[in-house]
Amino acid sequence: MNNKSIVIDGKNVPFEDGQTIMQAATAAGIYIPHLCHNPDFTPHGSCKLCTVKVNGRNCSACTFPASEGQNITNVTKELNDDREKITQMLFVEGNHFCPSCEKTGNCNLQAVAYHLGMTDNHFPHFFENREVDASHPDVMIDHNRCIFCTLCVRASQQEDGKNVFAISGRGIEKRLIVNSESGLLKDSDLDVNDCAAHICPTGAILIKRTGYKVPIGQRIFDHAHIDTVTLANEGASHDE
């Protein structure tokens, strides 16, 4: 047992050495918005949605180690307004037309936007031309919706023991690429049962012929908030 703790929004939160702020918060039932973080994989720290103020300084909760003496703010108008703008950046960077996306209602990006009360995309759209790779018999990639969270990359490496995906390119030219000679998914060693095929928080990687099994209106985030859903899922996986 230990009795080390940090303070999040005025609440004492215990932590163990080696835990990140995100891990300590989740275990204590506190939701910190996030997209690139998934407790099953090495943290990445790229989406910046999980930014919290640690003793006045902005830090990514998913990568920053918890340590004694941290006074952290998580839910403030300032932070949530800025998180909303970061989410809006992701929406204008890609091409997110939710009404025609199979993932709608089950999408973490969308759900975070709902959670933050986002009603528009605020910034000018890039409308970049991005492709769809439907070559694989069971799995498809719609690059329009990729937010470069690398969860598929990490899942393939860390869970499936493969190396199917990578994020390539510099700056705004970033793109998901597939590890196969042709560059097509069908020529990679991805299997439909791979963790990497199911991990995508958005509608960028989809399993074919399953999209409308659950009708719109009855999907995860149609009625439940992402905070409760996340804490139920990720809190549990921490207790293991």
């Binding site: 091409n95 037309f97 009404p99 025609s100 995309n121 759209h125 409308f127 031309n129």
Partner: peptide
Amino acid sequence: VAVGACAINGGLPAMRNH
């Protein structure tokens, strides 16, 4: 007031943008 997905981000018609 921008009403609906198309007014907000171009929506379905904007799928011709690529």
